[in-house]
């Protein structure tokens, strides 16, 4: 039974900690970013934990060296810095190198979307899904709650290859009963099946999509909701089957819209089907210096449940 809410990072790191007891190949690197669970990792496994300091480029390079020698590495940092400060290190040493030499490096970034709301644009991750999806050989994973973050942790430690995992910075309500309900290899989970419109969301926006679906249901509209937690490697034909009967699909992401993130992912997946409309919702292509509450900022950009429901109605009227 899942708790009412949890931090993704705590669940993810608890899985890593449990595995460190039994798997001597597991090595944890942090770029001076912590958590209570990580304190235990550092205390109990000092020979397999290094804080590399505020040095994300070196984080990735050291992770690569360890992985080439057979270690399974978790590289942990704040999401925008992990995905952008060291992008070329990721491209060269993980994207390119992993194509010819097996390595298992799991980049775990905390601070999805606007979750570090009051910290401003430097600390918000609105480009990460797009730029990570661009890299061949790098899997992109974006859980929506603690249980799915835990399932993704288990998947990462079991499966070779470089991965980018985008975790929320705030505690979120639980959606999945347990991690067992999350089929990571499938890449998505169908929360609701409808007939009129389907809302496909990732991360925190899955919560908002479910609220929007409730609003629409009260109006006797039949709405589907899909949690897309894998944005580069997913079962495309199964996704296509799930979404195939909807005339309209609306993608919802806490990232810049039309830049290669979830919307592009769905366009790829559904590209072969004629006549289906994909509407993309996300943040406009500009940085915000507004200090304040995440939900308020999302509502401002049309990403609250009321706006999303309105968009769905508008699509259905066409």
């Amino acid at each position: 039974m899942a708790p009412a809410s949890s931090r993704m990072r705590d669940v993810f790191l608890a899985s890593v900690l449990a595995r460190m007891k039994t798997d001597r190949r597991l090595f944890f690197l942090s770029a001076d970013f912590g958590s209570p669970v990580l304190d235990v990792v550092a205390r109990d496994y000092p020979d397999r934990f290094i804080n590399v300091g505020i040095a994300e480029q070196n984080l990735i390079n050291v992770a690569t060296g360890l992985a080439l020698e057979g270690f399974v590495v978790v590289a942990y940092a704040i999401a925008p810095f992990l995905s952008m400060r060291c992008y070329e290190q990721i491209r060269v040493n993980l994207g390119i190198l992993s194509q010819v030499r097996p390595l298992n490096v799991n980049m775990v970034g905390v601070g999805a979307g606007l979750s570090y709301d009051v910290s401003g644009p430097t600390h918000q991750a609105l480009e990460d899904l797009s730029i990570m999806r661009t890299l061949p050989n790098v899997e992109v994973l974006s859980p929506a709650d603690g249980a799915s973050a835990g399932a993704i942790a288990e998947y990462c430690l079991e499966h070779s290859g470089p991965k980018y995992v985008r975790l929320d910075g705030k505690p979120l309500a639980s959606l999945y009963e347990t991690g067992a309900a999350v089929n990571v290899e499938m890449g998505f989970h169908e929360w609701r099946r409808g007939t009129d419109v389907c809302l496909v969301a990732t991360g925190y926006m899955v919560h908002t999509a479910l609220k929007a679906a409730q609003i629409l249901e009260a109006e006797n509209l039949s709405v589907g909701v899909v949690d897309m937690f894998a944005l580069s490697k997913y079962k495309a034909s199964e996704l296509s089957d799930v979404l195939g009967h909807y005339q309209t699909v609306i993608t919802i992401e806490e990232g810049f819209v039309g830049k290669g993130g979830l919307d592009a992912c769905l366009n790829e997946a559904l590209g072969a089907r004629g006549g289906q409309r994909v509407h993309a919702l996300g943040l406009p292509s500009r940085y915000s210096f507004r200090v304040g509450d995440r939900d308020e900022m999302l509502r401002d950009s049309g990403l609250g449940e009321v706006s999303i429901a309105a968009k769905a109605r508008e699509c259905l009227r066409r």
Binding site: F27, N58, I60, V62, G65, F71, E88, V92, N93, V100
Partner: peptide, 30 residues
Amino acid sequence: DPVIPGYETVNGSLGHGPGVACGMAVALKR
């Protein structure tokens, strides 16, 4: 490129080797 027998890593984009070597050195010690 590391498709050449005897080469360990991707080379030529400068500045990557020392950090990767650090990771290998830690790994060999462990």
